[in-house]
Each structure stands twice: as C-alpha cells, then as structure tokens.
Simulated assay, not measured.
Amino acid sequence: MAEAPPPTRWAAAGPARGGYAENFARLVASGADVDGEARLADALLPRGARVLDVGSGMGRVAAALAARGHDVVAVEPDPDLVAQSRRTYPDLEVLEADVLAVSADDVGTFDLVVCVGNVLVFLAEGTERPVLERLRSLLRPGGRVLAGFHLRGAPPAARRYSPEAFIVDAEAAGLRVDLRAGSYELHPPTDAYAVWLLSAAG
C-alpha cells in the first residue's frame, strides 16, 4: 500500500462528529429503513457484481449490498467504525484504510464504487481530486461511481462542496457526470443534498 494520506476532516472533528455511529446503531437495532443508498446501488448493478464501499462507516450500505448477493469490499479509515462494523456485520469484509492508500493491486476493480454518506465532504483538505482519481482507477470497464453528500446542513466539520466545484474536480479526475439527483430515490436536484452517478470519461 502507498504512503499514509493526511488526516481527514472526519478524523480532525473528534466529538463534533455528532454521534454518527451511535445514531445509526440505534436505527439498525430498531429495524428502521437505512437502505436507501443500497437500493439505488443495487438497481444500478447486475446480479453478483463487485462493489467497493468507500468510507463504509459502520457497514450498513455494504452489508445491505452483500445481502443482495453482490461481492462487496468495504474500506473505512476510522478504527472505531471498523470495529463497530465488524461487530454489527461479522460476515462483511472491511479493510481498515484510507482509500488513497488502496490500489487496484490491493483490491481489484469494481462494477460500482459507492461513496455516500458525506464521505466526500469529510476528506482531508485538498485531497478531493486525488480521491476522485483513485475512485476512477478502481473502476472496471463500464463501471460507475455512486456518490452523495450534503450541499447544506452537513456537520460543522464538513467542507462546503458546491455542485460546480465538484463537477470541476470530477472532470479533472477523468470522470463524467451522468446523473445528478436530489435524493437516492432520484428526486430532482435540490440545494440541500446531491446524489451523483459518475463514469469514466471517454
């Protein structure tokens, strides 16, 4: 694996993370519907596809996709979230690493790379474009990236990532925007949340 990347905004936030893990653990335990991202991802894929969940958190999206029959690898740099994921979903493969420390030589390539739940607005400052380049490098021919993040209303530690800035970074990373929506149910775009479907340009 490559040299360790810089600390993310998530790591620097400390208590300002706002109880993310505890909140989703309660939701999962209560039987609440937390599969919106996974339903859309599943609809984009053939059966038995290879999926990489980048910034997989406590594992809910990756586990839901694995339960739907996909070959899923989860990548999460936060050791506490990795531990929670392994407790909650013991059959889920989780790699404790920053995506910038992972290459196709390590994990192979994928039909879909999932990068949801505000991962892109919690990256280390200045690494957005390198991360998008890395996501592109992990795609199989015809593969796609499903991303989503708050445009407003994100936790204080997150950056504001405007649609315009994101599109510039995505295109510079060799990605094409195929779809922008306002939710994982594909509502029209809003100024609150953005869901993106990307593919390799050219």
Rank of each mutant, 00 (worst) to 15 (best):
S103F: 04
S103G: 15
S103C: 07
A104M: 11
A104R: 15
V107I: 08
T109I: 06
F110N: 08
D111A: 11
V113K: 10
V113Y: 14
C115V: 15
V116L: 04
G117N: 14
V119S: 02
L120I: 04
L120K: 06
F122V: 09
L123W: 08
E125C: 04
E125N: 10
E128T: 15
R129L: 15
P130M: 06
P130Y: 05
V131I: 10
V131D: 10
L132C: 09
R134K: 12
R134W: 11
L135E: 12
S137G: 15
L138K: 12
L139D: 02
R140V: 02
G142P: 13
R144D: 12
L146P: 03
L146E: 10
L151A: 02
P155M: 06
P156I: 05
A158R: 08
R160L: 14
Y161R: 13
Y161C: 07
S162I: 10
P163D: 03
P163T: 02
V168L: 11
A172Q: 15
A172E: 15
A173F: 08
G174H: 07
G174D: 07
R176K: 12
R176P: 00
R176Q: 13
V177D: 03
V177P: 06
L179G: 00
A181N: 07
A181G: 10
A181F: 06
G182E: 08
S183R: 03
Y184L: 12
E185P: 00
H187L: 11
H187S: 14
P188W: 06
P189N: 01
P189K: 00
D191Y: 01
Y193I: 01
V195N: 03
V195I: 06
V195W: 00
W196K: 00
L197V: 09
A200S: 14
A200Q: 09
A201P: 00
